[in-house]
Design a protein around this nucleic acid. Structure first.
Lengths: 203, 203
DNA sequence: ACCTGAACACCGTTCAAGT
DNA sequence: ACCTGAACACCGTTCAAGT
């Protein structure tokens, strides 16, 4: 047996990605498997390899789906008032990580085998997140693009660290909202005064 | 066959942990396996289970070894001048993560299966790192212990995020020393002025 | 009591062979 | 061209049986 041809290759890829996306949510990165996804779609493992070449590429496609939905979410719910943007993005990052822990952490748990480079089409999906934050941060650094890029990455990385350690229970924090308060502290430090970061780049 | 009795149980545990520690360095968390460690020690897989009960406990023991050596390292190399401590610990964190990436990242890649709680003896090995940073941060918050604990966790998490994303190549940074500069920026924000954080807790 | 060997239920990966 | 089924080399986990 073989050759069902019930779907085009493109349709089948979409079905696989959706099934993979669901399995990531249900089982997490460590419980994710090509065989499991294949079973979920009613096909054989070989089909996954036929469609994507290798497991890395498949996982990248699943993670790309996460990044697309996440980005969409961030953009569509962003407030219009510029002065609220930094606070919004920072808290929104933590909220997303909390609400969709498995699919979010898969983004960072996945490693290319043999340290192969990430394909060119994938990297921008991660990087374009910076553009949002850069824009949000811009008014706080006197509209200096270089300072904005630099502060945006610092804040992104810091919020990421807070989210990671907090959700992994590695911060010894007591009570709900502790991580949220840390983010508030970070915002206060980074963007608390008005235009504290003019000259950020010249120190 | 069985019962070699060449070593006591304690000795065998030590041998297993050392072999596991080495394998973590060589293969990384994702390439780590009980079977591989057993082969490395010249025993069967069953022995690992006999010694530690389950794989989680074994990995925890290996990671504990990392935390012990790391802590030792931090303490022994810390500068004596109090005003250099924050800068030292922040950069030292990144330097350790960079130099021992596999064993360091294993600390954060490991998850208990079925979301079992981390055993009581393990948690403090992670948490005592905070004590160092709390002490370092203390003079910057007017010797307020609560503010120190809060700022220490914020800095720890932020430096962790910078290290994670930077070493994973997810920060789109060009040139060497970019992560180091981010840490300098963080320090400038958090601890740059003198005693900026008096009243940190009362906002 | 300590350790082995084998078994079981899973993986990722490859590929000849069917339609 | 598409997809299967089977094979291979790995896993984690358990446990009866040897010393």
């Amino acid at each position: 047996m073989a050759r069902r041809s019930e779907h085009t290759t493109e349709e089948l890829k979409e079905i696989a990605i959706r099934a993979g996306f669901e399995m990531m949510d249900e089982k997490g990165y460590q419980g994710f498997s090509a065989r499991g996804v294949a079973a979920k779609m009613g096909y054989t493992v070989g089909t996954i390899y036929h469609l994507f070449g290798d497991l890395d590429t498949f996982i990248l496609n699943v993670n790309a789906r996460t990044l697309d939905e996440w980005y969409e979410d961030e953009v569509s719910r962003a407030p219009k008032k510029a002065e609220q943007l930094v606070r919004y993005y920072a808290h929104s990052y933590l909220a997303y990580a909390r609400a969709h822990y498995n699919r979010w952490s898969a983004l960072f748990e996945h490693r290319m085998q043999d340290d192969a480079p990430v394909p060119k089409w994938y990297a921008p999906k991660m990087m374009r997140m910076f553009d949002l934050i850069e824009g949000a941060v811009m008014p706080h650094v006197g509209d200096d693009p270089k300072a904005a890029a630099r502060l945006a990455k610092l804040m992104w990385a810091s919020v990421h660290g807070i989210s990671t350690l907090s959700l992994q229970g590695k911060l010894d924090q007591t009570g709900a909202g502790a991580a949220e308060r840390m983010i508030d502290d970070l915002i206060a430090l980074a963007v608390g005064g008005k235009k504290v970061f003019v000259g950020f780049d010249k120190r």
